[in-house]
Simulated assay, not measured.
Amino acid sequence: MKNALDLVTAAKAQVTEIPVTEAEAAIRNADVLIDVREESEFGAGHLPGAIHASRGMLEFKLSGTPALAARDIKVVLYCKTSGRAALAAAAMKEMGYLNVTSIAGGFDAWVAAGKQIDKPQLPSFG
């Protein structure tokens, strides 16, 4: 019987992870940057330019979004620490996507490296 860590380890063995030091260049060269965290995590702050598709809904969003249907699009994925992104990348690979990478260390590594994040602006009632 496998646990979540076993599944993540197996996924990481079959997908491409890039270090956070290479992430900005990979994002610039990508067609899409996908945040696979939960909606509340995305809303609290995310990488600039990211779209949201939680890990639990990713395959359905990919299948239902014509702009993401081409299997040769370049995709960069991330989550909080890289486990969900690895699982998502493995699922996309199984779906036939050819150019999928995930950011090692995820959002936490991005923040720790001092890189920019986008946060929603709260309205001013002053």
Rank of each mutant, 00 (worst) to 15 (best):
I103Y: 01
L58N: 03
G64N: 15
P19C: 13
F42H: 06
L87P: 04
L58V: 06
V111F: 06
A91D: 01
P123F: 08
T21E: 12
G43T: 13
A30W: 10
I73R: 14
E94D: 15
A13Y: 06
L7F: 11
E41K: 06
P120Q: 08
E39M: 15
A10N: 06
E59Y: 02
S102N: 15
A85V: 02
L7Y: 06
E24P: 01
T9L: 05
G126V: 15
T101Q: 15
I103M: 03
A85M: 01
T9M: 03
C79V: 08
D108H: 15
F125L: 14
N3K: 09
D108C: 09
V15H: 00
L7I: 12
G106Y: 05
T101D: 10
G43A: 15
L122N: 14
P120M: 09
V75S: 02
R55H: 10
A23T: 10
A53R: 09
L33D: 07
G96N: 12
L33W: 05
F107D: 04
S124A: 14
A50W: 12
I117D: 04
L68P: 07
G64C: 07
V76F: 03
A69S: 15
D31Q: 04
A85W: 00
M57H: 14
T16S: 12
A11R: 00
A11N: 02
I103P: 07
G105C: 06
E17I: 04
A67M: 01
I51V: 15
K119P: 11
G106F: 00
S102I: 02
T101H: 10
A23I: 05
C79R: 03
F107P: 06
H46E: 03
Y97P: 05
G49Q: 12
V100S: 03
V76Y: 04
I103G: 05
A11Y: 00
A109E: 05
G56W: 08
A67E: 11
N99A: 10
V36M: 08
A67F: 08
I73M: 13
G43N: 15
A112M: 05
L7C: 12
A4N: 12
A90C: 13
V32Y: 01
G83L: 02
K12E: 06
Q116D: 13
L33G: 02
A70T: 13
D31L: 07
L58Q: 02
S82Y: 01
G45T: 11
A109F: 11
L68H: 09
A26D: 08
V75G: 00
F125S: 13
K74Y: 09
A23R: 04
Y78W: 01
G105P: 08
Y97R: 05
R28M: 11
L68F: 09
V76A: 01
